[in-house]
Structures are given as C-alpha cells and as structure tokens.
Design a protein around this nucleic acid. Structure first.
Length: 381
DNA sequence: TCTGGGGTCCTAGGACCC
DNA sequence: TCTGGGGTCCTAGGACCC
C-alpha cells in the first residue's frame, strides 16, 4: 500500500451531549450527563420553563453514556457507573438517552462529510474515516472544509485528524479535542506518536495495556523499541507482530465504504437480579420480548438468521453464551424463541440472573437464500 | 457505588470428511 | 490396520470498540 495516501478521521465532540444541548440550549455551560431512563426526562412547567433531573436523584444500575466537558471536570466520564458519578457530581443535570435524535444528527454529519469526500467508512454513530487522497489542496485546507461542512449541517463541532493511514488519523483526531485539527506526516512519528500512551491505540485495551505495563511498557515508543521477536514471544505471533507494525505507524487497511451486518442482538439488564424459579414469569416475559425485538429487527432490515444464541449474566457477573445453528434460516419470532429456548435448556440456572440477551447470527439477505447445495444430481460409479 | 447495550473479530477444541 | 495432515463447520469464551 503506497504511503502517499491521505486518510481523514472525523470525530464528533461529546456527540450525545452536544445533540442534547441543541434541544436544551439553557444547559449550555452546565455540567450535564446522558444516562438513565425515560423517567429522567425533563418536565415542562405551565410557564414553559423546564425542570431537569439531577444526577443525585438517580437510582439504578446503569452507566454514563456521555458527559459534557464541564461534567468531566468533576472526574466523571462515559462508562462510569451512574451511581458513582452521582457522588462525584451530584448537581449535574441528568438526561435520558435519545437515540432517535442522535441518529438524525448522525445522518446530517455523515452526509456533510460525504459532500466533501464520497469515500467514507462508518465507525459507529459519531465518527467516520474518509479517504481524501484524491482531493486537491493542503491537508489543513481539507480539514477546514470538512469541519465547516459538518458545522453548517449540524451546528456541532468535530475534531479532525489527517494522516497517511487510519491508525494515525484516529490518533490525530483525538489530540486537539474539542474542535481540533491535527495533521500528521510519517516523519512526525517519533516526536508526536511515540510519547503517547500505548492504550491510545485502537486494539490495545485494558488487558493488553496491563500486560504491557507489567513488562515495563507504557508508551507507543517503548513498544517500537522492542524487536518483533520479543513481542511475538510475549503476545503470540498474530498480536505480537501487529503490535510491532502499529508502533511503527504502519497500517494498510483500506477505507471500507460498505459492509453487511454479521449479527443482530438485544439484551437487557434487570432492575433486580431474577431467579429462574422465583421469577419465572418475569423472565419468560422478558425472554419473549427480546425474541420479538430481534425478529422485528431482522424483518425491518430484511435479513434471515441461521444461528440463534442467548446470553446470560449471573449475579456474580459471570457471563455464559449458548448458540445453535439451524438447518434453515429464520426471522420469525416464534421460531426464534423455539431455537433460543433450546439454547436456554443447556444452561444450569442456579444463580440469579442479572442480564438476558438474544442474538441472531449467520445472517443472509431475504431473497438471497440461494440453495447452492440442494439438488445434487451427482452420479457415483 | 459495582460494572449498559450494540456490535466485530479472534482463538481453540472437537467433529467430520477427504 | 494404523497413522497423519488439511480443510471446514460448529460452539464457547473473551478482548475490544463506540
């Protein structure tokens, strides 16, 4: 892969929180978090003013979806248990998630990026990669174009990184948040990338980060200082040589403009843990509902599934999965529940259940159910 | 104060076939 | 009759990402 490529990574700033601020402008400048349920929605008074829930009023087992920069100043961040955040920032405003709103803004954002460069790859709801190799002009100018197109369409800010590949572009977009632009050339690798924490790299999570730390490695440069053999010895041939490559800023993954879904799932964490015997009714009802939701998702998007699976998380947080591959693909709620029940029978239900999930995999598009191996008129002599 | 929900990809063992 | 290697499919679990 030639390294005269130019890849942009565009990342919306505090996306969910920013979408909410566009709905509730009076909250601008206040500490605010998104989490919680519909019951946490703001109430409108007769005089038109609004009353908001506060973090201190929250009771439940959720985690923060996002937090404004003002709330982050109290030490709260997305992924933190909401009850813990409530102790750190009790007066922060609490809003429930509103995915419909975020999807609307997401479409506007992506269309705006597409108006600058048509080669874009979705990475979740609030970020995209764009291949801008073929665009004319300096990278700085392209970054400005992307940002102003996004702002015009959404009134929201984003941060942009432009680099020779996706790995580096992603690292760049994070360097000057919010509302930042960072351009990186390969020769800036040692000065800019090597001092960064290893965990900044996409693919080095908590486990790998801790293992690196135990080996005395905390920065990307310290990974790069080891030779490949050493990394392979400690992390296996695949992950070890991947670590070697990324620490040297190498990444030849293309910008993928289209992909088919691999699975669709629904899961729910109960308000209280449920026991298979004492709470049989509630569990059965939840199970049916999850199957119906997955079936509806399949049907709305036009897919059939040949693999059906379940997921259980017990009160001790241990998680088990079971799945079954069917002879014929399905999208019907009843058939789905039958298959999921088969899976459920293979799990010992002694502990209370915290989470229940249903998943459909091995997907194929409706109408593309071509039987490539059915009538076999093979004659053996 | 325990730890959401929706995904993707990888590994590893066993079955089965050639 | 024994041995072996490769390929594919299935299942379970886990790491990681947004």
């Amino acid at each position: 892969m030639p390294d005269d490529r130019r890849i942009a990574h565009i990342d919306m700033d505090a996306f969910f929180a920013s979408c909410e601020l566009s709905q509730y402008p009076e909250l601008r400048g206040e500490a605010m978090v998104v989490a919680g349920r519909r019951s946490d929605a703001p109430r409108t008074n007769p005089d038109g003013t609004r009353e908001f829930s506060r973090l201190r009023d929250y009771k439940g087992r959720g985690v923060l979806t996002t937090a404004t920069y003002e709330a982050r100043a109290f030490g709260v961040h997305s992924g933190m248990p909401t009850m813990k955040a409530a102790r750190l920032a009790p007066n922060a405003v609490l809003l429930p998630v509103n995915f419909e709103l975020y999807r609307t803004y997401s479409r506007l954002f992506k269309d705006a990026v597409r108006s600058v460069s048509s080669t874009i790859q979705d990475v979740g709801i609030d970020e995209v990669y764009a291949d801008v190799s073929l665009l004319n002009g300096e990278s700085e100018e392209i970054a400005r174009q992307l940002k102003s197109a996004v702002f015009e369409a959404t009134q929201l800010t984003c941060s942009v990184g432009i680099a020779p590949n996706k790995l580096l572009a992603k690292l760049c977009s994070d360097m000057r948040k919010p509302d930042g632009v960072t351009i990186l050339r390969l020769e800036d690798l040692q000065s800019t990338i090597w001092p960064m924490a290893a965990s900044k790299i996409n693919g080095i999570g908590p486990k790998a980060g801790a293992k690196l730390g135990a080996l005395g490695i905390t920065t990307i440069g310290e990974i790069a200082a080891r030779d490949e053999h050493w990394l392979v010895e400690h992390f296996g041939s695949s992950y070890g040589s991947w670590l070697h490559r990324v620490s040297h800023g190498l990444d030849d993954r293309p910008v993928v403009t289209h992909s088919e879904p691999v699975s669709m799932s629904r899961e729910t964490t109960f308000e209280q843990d449920l026991h298979a015997v004492q709470h049989r009714q509630e569990l059965g009802a939840a199970f049916t509902r999850l199957c119906e939701q997955v079936a509806l998702d399949l049907q709305r998007k036009g897919y059939l599934a040949r693999k059906i699976g379940i997921k259980l998380r017990f009160n001790d947080f241990k998680t088990v999965t079971r799945d079954v591959t069917l002879a014929e693909p399905i999208a019907d709620a009843k058939a789905l529940r039958r298959a999921a029940t088969q899976c459920l029978k293979r799990v010992e239900l002694l502990k209370s259940i915290r989470l229940l999930g249903v998943k459909a995999g091995n997907l194929q598009r409706v109408g593309e159910v071509l039987d490539d191996k059915s009538p076999q008129f093979t004659l053996d002599f």
